[in-house]
Design a protein around this nucleic acid. Structure first.
Length: 206
DNA sequence: GAAGTTAATAATTTACATCA
DNA sequence: ATGATGTAAATTATTAACTT
């Protein structure tokens, strides 16, 4: 078991001075190699008992303040911080690495959330536009029926009547915008039931 | 209150980049 | 080319707080 005092003001390096000394590379050995060496001190180890890993709130606070002003950690600042907090410079470096990773994860989550909202709004707008298209198609269909009726009525009267020229041919093609009438079936989608196309994924991330 | 579970985070490993 | 150093990403290990 670990002492409660560990969490208080005692600095970690004072509690286990042997831990990091023990893993320091021997003279002549490269630091890089030493860093990669597996060490599994499960629990016991040095005479001071289990190594305490949790940083004190004061240490974390100081590290957070430093991280807030600059995410990168130059070796000078690392050494100064380590000295100030009574930590091994390696611990400070590790803390910054992990903090950067957490920060990145959080940032990605926020970006995802924003994009999700944008997507949801676009889907809503898409539905609105689709129903507007349906309404306009109905209006167009009514207008065509009316034209048909008028042309049928005028057929019996005179072929040369000014009204006889009133047909779909007379309608400016620009009236239909960028798609022709024939293309409507492909362009417009009428939602069935309450299934909203494109929204399937939203519920995956409740 | 011991045993199991879980979330947070400290530490390690690996692969790669940069620089002297 | 080579070794030191640093970082990101992935992973492991440990701790403390909950739950059963």
């Amino acid at each position: 078991m670990e002492c409660e005092v560990d969490d208080q003001m005692l600095l970690l390096s004072q509690l286990y001075p042997g831990v990091y000394d023990g893993m320091m590379p021997a003279q002549g050995e490269t630091i890089a190699k030493a860093r990669r060496r597996k060490k599994k001190n499960k629990g016991e180890g040095n005479e001071l008992g289990a190594r305490k890993r949790k940083l004190s709130p004061e240490q974390v606070n100081m590290l957070e303040i430093n991280f807030g002003s600059e995410h990168k950690l130059e070796s000078e600042r690392k050494d100064r911080l380590a000295l100030e907090l009574g930590l091994d410079p390696r611990q400070v470096a590790v803390w910054f690495q992990n903090r950067r990773a957490r920060w990145k994860t959080k940032r990605l989550e926020e970006e995802f959330s924003k994009l999700k909202h944008v997507h949801e709004n676009i889907v809503v707008e898409k539905c609105r536009l689709e129903s507007e298209v349906i309404k306009l198609k109905e209006q167009l269909s009514e207008a065509e029926k009316e034209i048909q009726r008028l042309s049928e009525r005028s057929d019996g009267v005179s072929t040369n009547s000014p009204c006889s020229s009133f047909s779909m041919d007379a309608i400016d093609p620009r009236f239909f915008g960028e798609f022709g009438v024939d293309g409507f079936d492909n362009v417009f989608y009428v939602p069935q039931s309450n299934h909203v196309p494109g929204m399937e994924w939203v519920n995956l991330y409740g």
